[in-house]
């Protein structure tokens, strides 16, 4: 069928040409050049730049914060998705719409607002600081903005699956005497596991790469609150291009691993498609 279409439908060559040229020029060649550039360094120089104590502290902080934020999102996202699908409550449509805000709001705005809300005399910092909770310029602040940016991914992954769940299994479970909790744990949760995991990974991947919002709320101190993206930028500002490229290559490698993981998870979470 498809081979017949190539003979009948026009535009194969043209669309192939445009797609491949654009993809190569904008994405593939630049990425390859970045890797080549970091190869200018000898192995020792590369490891010194990409694996220095400061760089290691930055990777660790990046992954730690992104992981904690993604775990928090897992719980919050499940609760919000569950409420939106199963219950009726006032302002539900508005709440549902507000879930998408983190996807549309520029990260610089997120950073600005969160920094302003949580400083000592900000709207929320005003209450938290006397209780000994410092958010602005700390690790807690980084986790908080990453929770904000990653939050819609879990909700929007779980929501459609939850809405399409078959009622029969739950009813059968209830008829046979299972409590609501047992039904949730053994009947509903297994169905939600794939979308939860894929939402988790998406939120985590987004958190690892996030820069704009973090740079506002963190104090960006080396070894303490400096994430990998901030380290790359400060290397660039010192005109240490190759060192910046070395750190970038490590992050790039991690992106590829996450991308592969995401595509595997997505195939797993939608076995009914294709």
């Amino acid at each position: 069928m498809k081979t017949i279409m190539r003979r009948v439908l026009p535009g194969f060559g043209l669309s192939l040409g445009i797609s491949v040229t654009y993809l190569s020029l904008l994405v593939l060649i630049p990425l390859a050049a970045c890797v080549v550039k970091s190869l200018d360094l000898s192995w020792e120089e590369f490891t010194r730049a990409a694996w220095s104590p400061r760089a290691r502290a930055a990777y660790w902080l990046t992954f730690e914060c992104a992981f904690i934020a993604a775990v928090i999102n897992l719980a919050l996202g499940l609760v919000v998705a569950w409420s939106l699908v199963r219950y009726r409550f006032p302002l539900k449509t508005l709440i549902d719409a507000l879930v998408d805000v983190p996807l549309a709001l520029p990260t610089a705005v997120t950073g600005l607002v969160y920094a302003s809300l949580y400083v000592k005399d900000g709207w929320l910092g005003h209450f938290l600081t006397p209780m000994g909770v410092e958010v602005a310029y700390t690790k807690l602040g980084i986790v908080l903005v990453l929770v904000f940016t990653g939050f819609p991914f879990v909700v929007r992954s779980v929501q459609p699956v939850l809405a399409e769940l078959d009622a029969d299994e739950e009813e059968a479970s209830a008829v046979m005497g299972a409590s609501r909790w047992v039904t949730f744990r053994h009947v509903i949760l297994p169905h939600l596991l794939p979308p939860l995991l894929s939402g988790f990974t998406l939120a985590f991947a987004r958190g690892v790469g996030e820069y704009g919002s973090v740079v506002f709320i963190s104090s960006n101190m080396p070894f303490k609150t400096e994430i990998a993206a901030v380290l790359i930028v400060s290397r660039l500002e010192e005109f240490a291009y190759r060192e910046a490229a070395a750190v970038a290559v490590v992050m790039l490698g991690f992106s590829f691993v996450l991308l592969a993981l995401i595509s595997v998870l997505e195939r797993w979470s939608q076995p009914h498609v294709k």
Partner: peptide, 19 residues
């Protein structure tokens, strides 16, 4: 096609800077 979305924006900027 999905590749650019999983790359950190800072890394993306750096790539163009280097090239």
């Amino acid at each position: 096609i999905d590749l650019p979305m999983s790359i950190s924006p800072v890394v993306a900027g750096l790539v163009f800077m280097l090239v």
